[in-house]
Design a protein around this nucleic acid. Structure first.
Length: 424
DNA sequence: TCTGGGGTCCTAGGACCC
DNA sequence: TCTGGGGTCCTAGGACCC
């Protein structure tokens, strides 16, 4: 049996933990640049139709009228709260797959003579007690069924957020009550074609011939079909595999035409991604840089372009990567446009130990591993950008392109000067 | 005026090899 | 008129996830 533990409206719940005054009140969390809504607690969802990913400016009045509390996203806080939850889960199973910031699969198969419902309840209670975060627990023989069970656990009242699928009757009933669009792995495109042939529930889907599924939804769809019928096809992956690509791209706080500012943002992002690259002890073979204007705008001239550079020798040196990215940006930048976003992506990631030299490249650059180790350590200890490439700009100029986060809560758990204060 | 960010997996088709 | 058979590697694009 597999358990899926998933935090309820995770970002909104994290904000509420430190703001008891908001218990029972509608809360939403906004995306970068406070652009749109990315999380809403159940009060906010119930309130009206606050559609997820709706641009904030379109529903500002709705939020104000209903006294909805809203926060800019505070990933430092969410990441650390997530750690706490995952650490607790390790106590409940020797095999945990951390699937995303707010959910994990637990392999329960090694645990003998266990009452699944009781076990699920104790997971839920312990997390609530130790972190203040509410979770839902779904337990079933396969991952996709555990997802189904989790959804039911959260939706149906009286279950105390725990639901177990452990008999044929329960499975069938659960599938009949699950809309096909709510099945994990079946997205918009497939829902559309399934509706056309009158497949509306997860149960309907399991009644299709496997040949149809394979032909129209390929192997990915067939796996889901098997999983829903109770045959496990998706394993629990305990070890996070190293990333195959690392990228970042953020919209500017305001539109920018100036090349130097864009290049500064680009260098700053290279600093971020190369640090992640060093953490996983890899080097990148390619660096991709792209640039675009605001495609929502009906009045601005539109332009977007991207370019991939092959590095002579894979590297994770921020300064080397910055220099190649800068050259690449020069090639695609065209003056006279109001740019909205620049992004970088490192790919062709190879383990640092196995770097292939290049017969035709200039002599290998000197090894600076020690230097970067020290820099990364200082930035960890004293805060981001304590030491960085000068190309990545100074706080003054950074303000011109940095994200807008007008409503961010304090980083309660990671900054001494932002720690929660309690007055009597 | 204002519209997020970071990923993975799979497939078809082209180019190429012997 | 009629032109083999068995592969690999790479890339772009689709679909999906949180």
């Amino acid at each position: 049996m597999i358990a899926l533990v998933d935090c309820n409206s995770f970002y909104a719940s994290c904000e509420q933990v430190f703001r008891p005054d908001l218990q029972g009140k509608p809360v939403v969390v906004l995306s970068n640049n406070d652009g749109c809504i990315i999380a809403a607690n159940k009060e906010a969802k119930a309130l009206t139709d606050i559609p997820m990913f709706e641009p904030v400016f379109k529903i500002k009045k709705l939020l104000e009228d209903n006294d909805v509390a809203f926060f800019s996203s505070n990933y430092t806080l969410y990441g650390e709260m997530s750690q706490r939850v995952m650490n607790i889960l390790m106590d409940f199973s020797p095999a945990v797959e951390v699937y995303s910031i707010d959910e994990s699969f637990l392999n329960l198969s090694g645990i003998k003579s266990i009452n699944y419902r009781k076990y699920g309840l104790s997971i839920r209670n312990r997390i609530l007690k130790n972190t203040g975060l509410p979770v839902g627990v779904g337990i079933a023989p396969t991952k996709v069924l555990a997802k189904v069970a989790n959804k039911i656990a959260k939706k149906k009242s009286g279950l105390r957020n725990v639901f177990v699928i452990d008999t044929e009757e329960i499975r069938e009933k659960a599938l009949k009550n699950t809309n096909i669009k709510d099945v994990w792995g079946i997205g918009r495109a497939h829902v559309k074609s399934l509706k056309k042939i009158d497949v509306n529930t997860a149960y309907d889907f399991t009644q299709l011939p496997s040949s149809w599924v394979l032909k129209n939804m390929k192997i990915v769809g067939l796996r889901i079909w098997h999983e829903l019928r109770g045959k496990s096809c998706l394993e629990i992956n305990e070890l996070p595999r190293s990333k195959k690509a690392i990228g970042t791209a953020k919209s500017f706080g305001e539109r920018i035409e100036n090349f130097d500012l864009i290049s500064e943002a680009c260098a700053y992002y290279i600093g971020e991604v190369s640090e992640v690259l060093r953490q996983q002890k890899s080097c990148a073979s390619f660096v991709h840089v792209f640039l675009n204007t605001n495609y929502h705008s009906k009045t601005d001239k539109q332009y977007s372009n991207g370019i991939t550079v092959t590095l002579p020798v894979p590297t994770n040196d921020t300064l080397v990567l910055t220099s190649f990215a800068h050259q690449a940006l020069k090639e695609i930048y065209k003056p006279g446009y109001r740019y909205k976003k620049v992004g970088v992506n490192l790919s062709g990631l190879v383990p640092k130990k196995y770097i292939q030299g290049n017969l035709f490249a200039p002599v290998l650059p000197p090894n600076k591993d020690g230097l970067w180790e020290v820099i990364d350590h200082l930035n960890f200890k004293y805060g981001k950008s304590t030491i960085q490439s000068a190309h990545a700009g100074f706080p003054e100029s950074r303000k011109k392109w940095e994200l807008v986060k007008a409503h961010r809560s304090p980083r309660f758990t990671t900054q001494w000067n932002e720690i929660l204060k309690i007055s009597t």
